[in-house]
Design a protein around this nucleic acid. Structure first.
Lengths: 372, 372
DNA sequence: CTGTTAGCGCGTTCAT
DNA sequence: ATGAACGCGCTAACAG
């Protein structure tokens, strides 16, 4: 193990002073292009890397991003993390994982503790928070005090903190419209948890599509469900066994859609012949379910990327002016379809990414009622 | 935002010198219990936390663990991560995520790059490597040079690096024995990838159980498969459609078991009435498959915990003598059933955790052949 | 047992 | 455009 080189070693090797090397390393101006080149070459040859601890201590940036992550077991997390990691890997930053136990997700105090741990340890110079839940208020405070924070989706309404999510309403609209175009008219919806913004938005998208064709949402065809496995069991059974049952079901998400698939199987109803079902999220197992599930894909990977790029943009700004301006950021997003142009300061930054319908085999055209 | 306190502030507040504060912070001996208490109180009152950057720079430990993680999309990862996070959270350490893209998993060079990135950035003072694959050789080098490394399972044989995995052979033995006890005699096995140690071990466990009842493994009942979704499709169809088909199938893992379930469904074979199937891993969807899958649970959560505890034990040791001795470690594992007693130095540390059969609904007693 | 001194590796003034 | 000196917050010698 060759002993770790310091900036001084490089300075000596290049025949200059530490300061000059430091300047090159931090991309300062006022360095002779020739010496810059030379120093860069020496650095390259010796694969020298700055000591982050020392750099941070001396007043430089820490190049560490803290990520506040809910249970990695949520099936949407891996893709989000992939997006995050990819951007981080191509940057000079590293990612610290502050993951939250499932238990803690709902406990306000625990979250406050974690955040204070992040702050006090003084490591991370920015925070990426996925589904922060109750801690959103602390994060908002932090952000308003100038600490870089970006949020990836959440249960509640976005605050002033830059915020990335998918367009749930449009996605739900697309799903419902698709069923309508297949000829379905009795389309049921199993809702997500009432306290999730996404549930509301999906419900609204469902209503939007219905109203477009002059249909009013039928209260009998809307049932509460949830977002986790088996949350949709009873609603699914209810719809399937009710007299004059719906010919299609739009589930709050894929997990609930699986419940519908299972319930249908149990009651001898064939999908898609006798019942069409659409999910939401497009998590991995949806490609392999029986039948493969038609669903609305949330661009989790892209959301992770987008959010990380936004955070990096914040991080690269002088700390005095840490409001995000997407427009002139070096990490300007390519994808933010419905994002309003936010060039002026102090306007909340929200990026809403577009979803898209993934057609698989769980839907078929309505051909009149088929008895069991 | 109250300005960050330094160790000097605390020293002044407590009326002692920085060194003394440092000593109590680092749990050194030779501190008067009275002053220790007093300082601790002051620290507590002001919720002071050491600046890790400065601490590290000054020669202290970095309290940062680097985790080398393959795709988080592997369904076993969330549980492993949960185990890791939980132990890390209760320690003064933080976790840096060096996650590897799926593409990179197999590319030797990329991995070497990541490891050198870890080393050069000089942040992490230890590495937790999950399924390191090709980079195991670098990790071994590192470990032999005294850098703390612990590995959680891998495709190849363990090296001198401390290593945690589940007992695949015993697990497979249990699964097969279970089927035998249900009366099955024609038990097929779909194998995992040939270059995975786990595949071999599971196959051996399968043979063990067969031989115990005087049966020789029938080459016609063993097929190559894989570990990822759809890897088992063709093998499953093959077994199901073959004349005198097996009455039970032991799949290399749960994904492959799902393929068997799907193939059975497709061919109108009822599980478990006409065919019993057992998986391996017990990943989350196995509780919700149709029918719920009987499978061998790998204790991923416990493996994550165990490995992290081992790493912490290494980290807390003086760097001169960084060979792991489980016995007198403060993090001595409670669970390592078949682990040999490794109290002497220089012996490789392997912890093999026990699996256990989770009975659900995909198996039933053999009652003679039932035609479709 | 405790305080004093001297750096750790780097960024940032100041000079030049 | 570049170099010298100082200090970030802390730990590790050494005194006492």
């Amino acid at each position: 193990m060759p002993k770790k080189l310091t900036i001084r070693d490089i300075a000596e090797l290049a025949g200059v002073s530490k300061s000059t090397v430091s300047r090159v390393l931090n991309a300062k101006q006022d360095v002779d292009p020739a010496t810059r080149e030379h120093i860069l070459k020496v650095i390259e040859e010796h694969t020298f890397v700055l000591d982050m601890a020392a750099s941070k201590l001396a007043g430089g940036r820490s190049r560490l991003i803290g990520s506040l992550i809910p249970s990695l077991a949520w099936p949407l997390m891996p893709e989000i993390m992939r997006g995050i990691s990819e951007v981080v890997a191509q940057s000079p930053y590293e990612l610290i994982l502050y993951s939250i136990t499932h238990e803690q997700v709902h406990h306000d105090k625990e979250q406050r503790d974690i955040i204070s741990r992040i702050l006090h340890s003084n490591l991370a110079s920015g925070i990426l928070a996925v589904f922060p839940g109750p801690s959103i208020c602390y994060l908002t405070e932090l952000y308003e005090e100038g600490f870089p924070v970006v949020i990836i989706d959440d249960r509640s309404e976005p605050t002033s903190v830059p915020w990335v999510s998918a367009d749930n309403r449009l996605g739900a609209h697309a799903a419902t419209k698709y069923l309508l175009q297949l000829g379905h008219r009795r389309i049921a919806h199993i809702q997500g948890p009432a306290d999730y913004r996404a549930s509301q938005e999906r419900y609204l998208g469902y209503c939007d599509a219905l109203q477009e064709v002059g249909l009013a949402p039928d209260p009998d065809l809307v049932c509460p469900g949830g977002f986790t496995p088996t949350d949709g069991r009873s609603a699914a059974s209810h719809f399937i066994t009710m007299p004059n049952r719906p010919t299609a079901i739009f589930a709050s998400n894929d997990h609930v859609a699986y419940d519908v698939l299972a319930a249908a199987d149990e009651h001898g109803i064939r999908v898609p012949e006798q019942l069409s079902v659409v999910g939401f999220d497009d998590i991995a197992p949806s490609s392999y379910s029986r039948p493969p599930l038609t669903t609305v894909r949330q661009p989790f990977y892209e959301m992770g990327k987008q959010a990380t790029e936004m955070l990096l943009a914040l991080l690269e700004r002088p700390s005095t002016q840490r409001r995000l301006q997407i427009a002139d950021s070096p990490y300007a997003p390519e994808i933010h379809p419905k994002a309003p142009q936010l060039n002026q300061m102090h306007s909340p930054t929200r990026v809403r990414m577009s979803t898209n319908l993934v057609e698989r085999s769980s839907c078929s055209p309505y051909k009149g009622h088929i008895d069991c």
